[in-house]
Write a protein that binds this DNA or RNA. Sequence first.
RNA 1: GGGCGAUUAGCUCAGUUGGUCAGAGCGCUCGCCUCACACGCGAGAGGUCACUGGUUCAAGUCCAGUAUCGCCCACCA
Length: 842
Amino acid sequence: MSIPDKPTLDGLEERWNASWEANGTYRFDRSRSRDEVYSIDTPPITASGSLHVGHVFSYTHTDLVARYQRMRGREVFYPMGWDDNGLPSERRVQNYYGVRCDPSLPYDPDFTPPAGGGTSKEQLPISRRSFVELCDRLTAEDEKSYEAVWRRLALSVDWSAPYRTIDARSTAISQKAFLRDLARGNAYKAEAPTLWDITFRTAVAQAELEDRDRPGAYHRIGFPRSDGDGVISIETTRPELLPACVALVAHPDDERYQPLFGTTVRTPLFEAEVPVVSHYLAAPDKGSGIAMICTFGDLTDVVWWRELQLPTRAILGEDGRLLAEGPAEVDATVYARVAGKTVHAAREEIVAMLRESGALEGDPSPITHPVKFYEKGDRPLEIVTTRQWYIRNGARDEDLRAALIARGEALSWHPPHMQVRYEHWVNGLTGDWLISRQRFFGVPFPVWYRLGSDGAADYDNPIVPDEAALPVDPSSDCPPGYDEAQRGKPGGFTGDTDVMDTWATSSLTPQIAGGWTFDDDLMSRVFPYDLRPQGQDIIRTWLFSTVVRSHFEFDSLPWTNTAISGWILDPDRKKMSKSKGDVVTPISLFEDFGSDAVRYWAASARLGTDAAFDTGQMKIGRRLAIKLLNASKFALTFGATPDAAAVTEPLDRSLLAALGEVIADATAAFDAYNHTAALEVAETFFWTFCDDYIELVKERAYGSRGDEAAASAKAALGTTLSALLRLFAPFLPFVTEEVWSWWQEGSVHHAGWPTADELRSAAEGDSGLLGLVGVALSQVRGAKSSAQVSMKTDVAHAVVRGAAADLDRLRAAADDLAAAGRIASLTFEPAESENLTVDVTL
RNA sequence: GGGCGAUUAGCUCAGUUGGUCAGAGCGCUCGCCUCACACGCGAGAGGUCACUGGUUCAAGUCCAGUAUCGCCCACCA
């Protein structure tokens, strides 16, 4: 045993991390069978972003469970994943190296990134393969810095086997899962109006939308009736879409417009003849009660267009500019004035023309209205008709929808109310899951298309590779039976150029981490997983999509439990902004308070509840860790030894009896994924142990009442300290490991979780006695406090009054009470009152 | 407009199935250099448990409604 003279938290993190690494403390033993394993489907994190306190918060919650289960004897499968495909990495590479991807460029094997990096003004166009290589290289660097933070936080992951969602195996697994969904008919390609981000020039999915309030203006525009009998006035916030107008629509019950249904009007300026139609989605109380339908201004236009079987007059290109050629029905001369303009410029031009022609009625009236954005974009989404890949999600299939909702019901949610978020999302789905993106750094769709003699692609009958050939890159690999010379040639083939949405890959994390089809032995030991920890914001994306993929491939849930962490809020109760979160970096918190203290703060928040960013809580955690050092040191200097059988004194038996209750409560709490309750009971007990119990027995432990009484105290101290260190180990892994090392063999993190059994018969002691003595001791201290004298001041005489039954119990610990209070003469007198009081004569 | 959650001491939060539940810590006040800890110890003061009704012998605890805050969804002419 070696106890430092001055125990300190300094240096514990480096020392024990090195030890854990050297000893493989958190290494997964894959020889263990499924029922011995506790497996966690860790959220893979995007390392090219920035780690902030919110991540520290939720990942700590997961680690608490991992450490608890490990101590319970389960072999914990807790991998770390890096989710580095997708836009964040692309943007970081563009800025870092000063390059941009130009897929039309051939690959240059000797390419090296420009020396100036992100400082050069012009982004250097590079080939797709080079671009992907840079993404790979930079994200690998980013992952190292993230790993350092996670290690400092003491996440007990097995660092020998992290996975990356962009590596060859993940790519192969993504492609294989996709091909199987394709074969089952659960994945399909379709040409349809698609929400489109004009900045990134890619389609986006329903789950990635967000509304933002933007200023706009109602423009009242008169449409001349074809019969010459006046005009019909509509209001629109998007006058630039006038050339895309295909109809006017009003509600079927709207008497104002009923006579007009079936007639036609002419679009102002553009002179296209369009019908007046009816549809129940038209709102009589909005604007003038009649709207123009354009292809496409918003999602309602898409519904009208589809259900009313209207023609398509597309005017917007994928770059967000008006097409060079307008629809055939519109006046080409007028259209030429807006062709090629941005939406904004076209709006100004058309409004000017409308005003000039007199079709604009009055001045536009400004409004603020919600507009759909891609969550990572900064320009409003447009709707463009494109060919995209989809995966069925129940939106258009009631049986599938019901089956997926049933999966949600079968999953254990922590906290339970999070399940309704899942159900609402599934019930509110309006379309299948759009998984294709027109980007570069992602998993390519493993398909090719035959080109006809006219050079047109046959999209309905894609060529797919053999599973054994995966991963493939259809833009550089050839489909079976073709050679590279036939690429892009009539009669030859062309590769699909799209990549999968990041969720299409991350929906497969159980398969990727478990080595599905690559290491089925491992997969069989971890799947279905025990736990999916994640944030509430991605229930609709990550959680749901993982359930969908598992449902199709395995006809089962991917996990039995899901633990949902809340948000970190600013002190002003707002969701903590990225910018603020970046200012307070996790590393600076570790340095200021210590990792254990930061973990304590995170552990103090229940699953599913939002928590305030609170350095005060971290200070308390730090205080707890320091107290653990000092109290342990003190107890051990007496020669504390775990030996419950030697505990004979009533006060000592009371301590162990109370400890037994704490162990039972903490265990039940952890089993219910309620880590805050587990921490709370341990913490409360620990402070009582320090402030009351140790004070009460230290004289006796020094030997004031003989060897046997001292031995009982030492055994109680040792037994309790051992259990306390283990109860705190999931929360404060560094300080508990440090103290454990002073007097025990091995790692506390592999020591068994404490049980009532190890307390022996002492667990049957009077668990309330310690508290009762504590009340009396507090009164004695109070007397000294009001006399403004030191606690070591002698008390000449003290009389304890209270219920006779309480006094009888107290007498069993009278000597300890007298010693702690330095009471020369202690007597007991029954009283009427139930309340325990002590009259103190100094 | 629909849904979910929250609303308990100045602050951050506990309060399981209704009956010592009115609590903890921080902060504050007043003391104490007590031989583990001054990064400490002790003792105090602080709340009509958001509001309004209801059920009950009994309600922070159940029901209904209201208000405020947060989030999700819908609406986007």
